[in-house]
Design a protein around this nucleic acid. Structure first.
Lengths: 205, 205
DNA sequence: AATATTAGTGTACAAGTGTTGACTGAATCA
DNA sequence: TGATTCAGTCAACACTTGTACACTAATATT
């Protein structure tokens, strides 16, 4: 038997999943109606208000959730990975797999990063900052990065995070049309990231 | 006195401008209604159909229009500029100015690149390809780029175009909150682009 | 001058929208 | 056991939505 609290959390999740499902089906988050979400969650429209005041609030919670998932992924990868030569390739492989396994989330993020409300956009920007910082402290330890100063290291991390995320929409779109594209995408990304990495190695303020 | 054809083109433009205006005001293109657009264009809803079958078709035409404007900008800049050492800085300055002078267009593009219909997204992707090609043939002539092979040159161009465009949403958002941000944005971009450029210079397949 | 074309109008309709307020019944607490 | 809390229901509201159809009047064509 489920406790009341637990049940509530369950329908709350249903609502978020419903919204994500619609986004994954091609709808734009900002044009999804509260009613449609409620319907797909198997709940009456007015019930929505027991969980969120707004579609925006729901969206902000989705951002949070994905943030958590990504942080967990990062922690796990860091432990198992070890920073070898092929860091770039393995990282991007982990990332693309993760994206493909959470397509709806990433469609949502890609959309809202540019098309959400201001609050939503800046929530996403904050997540980026977080990841850029994590990345910065990770790569600081690397031998290539001994000479670079702290501010420039932040800049490189930002560049990497932004660039990877911004390419995600292409991955999502093109994987749909041709399933072999994921490999091609990885090759392209590895090349581009190596190039950036190369630049970072030579960088002097 | 205006000819009928000319008058038609005028209201057609009004419709597109109305849509862009709404986008620039914070609405998401995919949640804008045909009726609202018609109203803001000073025309009755049903009149919309004399020009476009759809909001999507309107959107595709907006993409085209901006593509034209950008090509014109590119041609002019190429003539006047001359490819000196400070190519990167002057290019990014021209670009940011252009963005700030066409805010609505770029909000629209940023939104639709990730949140438009599939047709819209791929139309925008095509524009990118075009610009990447232009850029590739421009930088091929540069002394730094003599050793790089053609395919890798394309890769570098893509990287540059994508990266600049994807940063545009931050420029738009943050310029609104603090007007001095444009300068800071330029500095950040110049740094990042120099880094990429540095990598490109050292690049060997 | 008579005719055909067509951009823009006006009306109408069925369907969907967010949000309100009063309600029900089962889980929780006293 | 009896009282309370509250997630979910139901009905109703005022409004907005896309689109069909018949119409008008000014322009373009013959």
């Amino acid at each position: 038997m489920l406790s009341r609290e637990e049940k509530k959390r369950q329908t709350r999740k249903s609502l978020m999943d419903a919204a994500l499902g619609l986004v994954g089906n091609g709808d734009n988050f900002s044009s999804i109606s509260l009613r449609e979400v409620a319907k797909n969650a198997g709940v009456v429209p007015t019930s929505f208000y027991r969980h969120f005041t707004d579609m925006e609030e729901l969206g902000l919670n989705v951002v949070d959730d994905l943030g958590m998932l990504l942080r967990k992924l990062m922690r796990n990868t860091r432990q198992s990975g070890g920073y070898a030569e092929s860091l770039t390739r393995s990282s991007i492989e982990v990332y693309t797999d993760f994206v493909c396994q959470h397509r709806n989330y990433f469609y949502f993020m890609c959309q809202c990063r540019t098309g959400g409300t201001l609050a939503l956009r800046s929530a996403i920007r904050n997540e980026f900052k977080y990841f850029a910082n994590e990345l910065a402290s990770d790569i600081r330890a690397l031998p290539v990065m001994t000479e670079i100063d702290s501010q420039d290291l932040d800049m490189v991390s930002q560049l990497l995070v932004e660039f990877v995320f911004e390419s995600t929409i292409d991955l999502l779109d093109l994987v749909d049309t041709s399933p072999t594209y994921q490999k091609e995408f990885i090759e392209q990304m590895v090349k581009k990231l190596r190039l950036i990495w190369l630049g970072a190695g030579k960088w002097r303020s």
